[in-house]
Structures are given as structure tokens and as C-alpha cells.
Amino acid sequence: MIHTDAWVLHAGPKGAGPHGRSPGRLHREAFPFTEPGEDEALVEPLYGSWEANIEHALSRSPIDVCHLRQEEKAVMGNLGVVRVLHPGASRLLKEGDICMVMPFARRDRYGYAELIYAYDAPGTIGLLAGRTKIAADLLLPVPENTRYSLAQWAAYARYFTAWDNWRVAHGCWLTQMGDQDPGEHLVFGWGGGVVLAELELAKRAGFRVAMTAGSDRRLAELERRGITAVDRRRFPHLAHDSERPSGDREDEARYRDSEKEFLSAVEKLSGGTGVAIFIDNIGAPLYKATIKSMARQGVVTTVGWKHGMRTFHLRASECINRHLHVNTHVWRYGDSAAIRDYQESTDWMPSIDPSGVYEFDEVERLAKDYASGAIDSYFPLYRVNEA
């Protein structure tokens, strides 16, 4: 039996419905696990990437992952960079290899994820631990003699996810608009690092690109990367709850004013045609504005949600406007090495400020900062062990 220092999530009370669950928190404690099997590697995490699924696990929304896994406690953290301590029976790994973790705990016959390592897959132990064990075939080596830091590689998952989602969304747009000059069409997004990475691919494909941000630092980062930055503080009341409208006239008036300002911004950026491909990784609160901003033959695409997973639209209107809706999850397992090599060879990489990386002792603060929107970086990272 191996015991490791870890940040652990405990199961919530049983029997609580989705609206009765109290949020969880991470507890620093010793976590035991059995010795790795032949097909598993013993590793020590170096850098972890803080993802929305960790916040979902802590908020117990939409599920209590511990109950789903039928476990009393679990260690989250499914994306990051690790060092191999013992490769098990793998002939592709050796002691000391630095690898990225591919989160495919269970995949379908086509290579797409069904269960995610260190989230909803039972028995998996995440990177919020001093040591852990991982199926050897989920470890993808960082390129030898890479030009980039390990902290930059630790943010890979947002890029891998963006690569896959853009491939599908762009392909869908081309089915209806393949004879069009992309330079006359706008790709717009709101969300975080996945959206930023995806907009960089859209820019490389020749599209106009724009993204919202709510802080001066993020606005500057977008402009530095050649993405038109739209200050979301211009429309502060754009969130709309389709399931539970407030019924307050003043609230409705504030929403209409913010929506009008947002649609005006889109009209100017798109030359009056609307958004050709809208990358919406926020979810329900902004979905009404997303749909209203769309161009005919437009594509709305997402790889998940940050707030509110249920969305509503008028099916007839979507048909008449020939809007295509794309929903993807993670990426295809077999594409992992190709995406890694594309990043290395084309400089499609994040900028990481080393001073913004949280230490292992600061994980609780990281969780609070992420939940409150206090993190300026599009790529929040934590360091577990020294590289």
C-alpha cells in the first residue's frame, strides 16, 4: 500500500437532490492506494491544470462524483504533467520520462472519451497528490528537447480540446459556406483558455476573430495575440435565466440594454451579418444572446459549460436560419500525438507567467479564486513537485 499527501474530496450526504447538495471542499490528508498493476505507471505530478470539472466536482453539480463512483472520497485533477517513477510493464515508457496525462479512462471503439480519469471514472487517482498511479497508455511523452517550459505543456488540454472542437465546427461551417471567403466572416467566443486557443486556430484559417474579457489584463492578452478584445463590462447585465425569469421590469430593462449593446458590438465586428461560428463555453446564462447574435448558416459550438448546462431555443427559428449546433467532449485519443506535434512545430502554445502558478500548499486558495473569477490567467496551474 502506498500513502501520499493529497487534496481529497469527500462524498456529500446521501439522498440529497441536485438542489439540496451542499458544496464540498478539499481536505489535505494522507491518501492510500494499492501498488500499480503491470499496465499502470507510478508517477509524481509536476504541474496540474485547474479545470472546470474540478469546480463541478466541488460544487457537486450536476452530480456528486464520489457517489457516482461509489467511493467515500476521491482525488481530483486529471490534466497535467508528470514524471514517471516506475513504468510498470510498459515498453514505451522509462523511469524519468516527463509525460502529459490523457484523460481517457474509458473510450468508445472510435477513441472518444466515455469516462474521464480522475473525474467520473471509479478507482482513478488524480494529480492533486504527491504521487499517483495512471494507466501507462494514458501517458504521452513531452517532446524531447522541446522549446517550451513544462508549465506551458501543462496547459495542453485546453489546446487539445480546442483543436478537436475547431476541427468539427469549422468542418460543419464549410458544409454550407465552403465557397465563402473566411476573411469576411466573424468567429466570436466567450469562455476561457479553450476559446482563446480555438480563436487562434480560426485566425490561422483566415477568419476575423473576437472574444470577450472582463479584466484589463485579459483584454491586453487577447490583443497581444491578434484577437479583437471586447470588454464584457460594456454589457454587465447580459446573463439571462430562461428557466426562472425574474419578472422584475427593471431587471428585464437592464438585460435588454446589455443585449442591445452586445448585439451592436457584434454587428460592427461582423459587418452586419452576425457571428459565423460562435464558441460558447459559458452555457445557459448567455445562451439567449449567443443565438440572437448568430449569422444565417452559422455554427454555435461548445465543449461544455461553466454555468448552467440546460439551454433552450426555438427549433423552428434554428431550422429556418440553418444554424448548426456542435457539441464535443475532450478529443479523440488517437489524435493526441498529432496535436502535441502541431503545438511544438507551429508555436501554438500558451503564455504562462511563472509567478501566477499556485503552489501545492495554495490549492484551497486556487479553488476559491477560480470559483470567484479572481484569476486573470486563462491557464490556471498548480505545482505539486519540483521539475
Rank of each mutant, 00 (worst) to 15 (best):
T175D: 11
D216K: 15
M349N: 05
E259M: 14
H329I: 08
R147V: 02
R91L: 07
L127Q: 05
N78R: 08
W348H: 13
L186F: 05
P236I: 03
R204E: 08
D361F: 06
G77F: 06
I2R: 09
V84H: 10
S377P: 00
R249Q: 13
G193C: 01
R28F: 12
G283C: 01
A113P: 13
L196W: 01
A30S: 15
V82P: 02
G171Q: 03
L238F: 05
G226K: 12
I54M: 15
Y333S: 10
Y117I: 01
N321I: 01
T212C: 09
Y382N: 07
G206C: 05
Y110M: 14
W153I: 04
P62D: 10
Y382W: 07
M309S: 15
K94T: 11
R208S: 10
A11D: 00
G206V: 05
G192Y: 03
P245D: 09
H325Q: 09
Q180N: 09
G226L: 04
S49M: 13
V230P: 06
G111I: 03
M1H: 11
F379C: 04
L26T: 01
R322Y: 04
H67Q: 14
Y47N: 09
I98D: 09
V187E: 04
E362C: 08
D376N: 13
Y255C: 00
D97P: 10
D179P: 01
D5I: 01
Y159G: 06
G193W: 07
M349K: 04
N385H: 00
A197Y: 03
I54Y: 06
H27L: 08
S149A: 11
G272K: 07
R332N: 14
T328M: 10
V303I: 14
W163A: 14
A338M: 08
S242Q: 08
D231A: 12
S355Y: 10
T311Y: 12
G88E: 05
S258V: 08
R233I: 06
R225I: 04
I63Y: 11
V84G: 08
D376C: 04
F160N: 07
G80V: 08
